[in-house]
């Protein structure tokens, strides 16, 4: 994997690790951005990892763009030799699939959809060859997901599923973006899941909703007291399908500020994963549900 370096005007360097999405490309992006942070290069103001690329913003009054470029290229070697191991956390996120709120929204924007006669999740199940929505939900919520990017707006996570390429779910975005998406919608576009952190426009297919707030500018939510954004790149997520009753109970807990997401610390090794995907995922599940 050889990175492609390019300037984004006089204040940014954009590095494409790979044109295609893969966990390998994501790991290079994450380790390079970590290396840039640790290198403390004078003039760097923002370090933004993405799925298979990353971006560094800098002040060209402090460091010449060519020198900045040279610094980053030098760090590529450091990142390449880094062991692809990540100490991170695994989080269980409850999802009420086929909920009434995203259903109401998707019905309002049917004329912008590829298949106006089906729901988003029915469409996704069909084009990915699943035998119905239940089997699709089983696949979507079965294997865990990596948070491979946080962004677009306000702490929105992009998630990439930890399965081999043939098992990856792929769904196109809406033909034309919606002007509305309920807050905390669990969406899907390309090979990525996402959670809409705030209400607003969106083009991803809508599968369900989580009761768990992931962005709180007031920082009143108990687990967002330290920082208003919940996710960071490298987090691992396990979707847990829930019923209407469980959703309502979770919302009550959120309102009482007693909702506590299930979070465990784990170590992830890319080499172990590539050697045995399902075995690695099983161990992650053990860690999540132990104790």
């Amino acid at each position: 994997m050889s990175c492609r370096y390019t300037f984004g005007g006089d204040e940014h360097i954009f590095v494409e690790v790979d044109e295609a999405m893969s966990l390998e490309a994501f790991f290079v992006s994450l380790s390079m951005t970590n290396a840039v942070r640790e290198a403390n290069i004078k003039g760097v103001t923002e370090i933004c990892p993405a799925n298979a690329s990353f971006q560094v913003k800098f002040n060209p009054d402090v460091i010449h763009p060519d020198d900045m470029m040279a610094e980053l290229k030098r760090l590529e070697e450091t990142a390449e030799s880094a062991e692809p191991v990540l100490d991170t956390r695994i989080i269980e996120i409850p999802v009420y699939y086929q909920d009434p709120w995203t259903h109401e929204t998707l019905m309002r924007f049917r004329e912008r959809h590829q298949d106006p006669n089906a729901t988003d999740i029915e469409y996704a199940a069909r084009i990915n060859g699943f035998d119905g929505v239940d089997a699709f939900i089983e696949a979507h919520s079965g294997a865990p997901w990596f948070v491979s990017m946080v962004g677009f707006v306000s702490g929105l996570p992009f998630l990439y599923q930890m399965v081999d390429r043939p098992r990856q779910i792929e769904v196109p975005k809406y033909l034309r973006p919606r002007t509305d998406t309920p807050r905390l919608t669990v969406g899907y576009g390309g090979c990525f899941s996402c959670i809409y952190s705030v209400r607003g426009a969106g083009g991803y297919q809508m599968f369900g909703i989580t009761p768990m707030p992931i962005f709180d500018p007031q920082q009143k939510v108990s687990y967002l007291k330290d920082f208003m954004v919940f996710f960071k790149p490298g987090d691992i997520v396990k979707w847990k399908p829930i019923t209407r009753e469980e959703y309502d109970a979770a919302i009550e807990a959120v309102q009482a500020n007693t909702f506590a997401p299930r979070i465990r610390n784990v170590r992830f090794s890319l080499d172990d994963y590539n050697a045995d995907i399902d075995g690695t995922n099983a161990k992650l599940m053990e860690a999540l549900y132990a104790g």
Binding site: H12, F14, A20, M21, S22, A50, N51, G189, C191, F192
Partner: peptide
Amino acid sequence: QPFGAGADPSNITDACYPYGS
């Protein structure tokens, strides 16, 4: 189109956007 990028030729695997891009 690379895996993850989407079908339209203007699509890329979701990436960062520089200010002014």
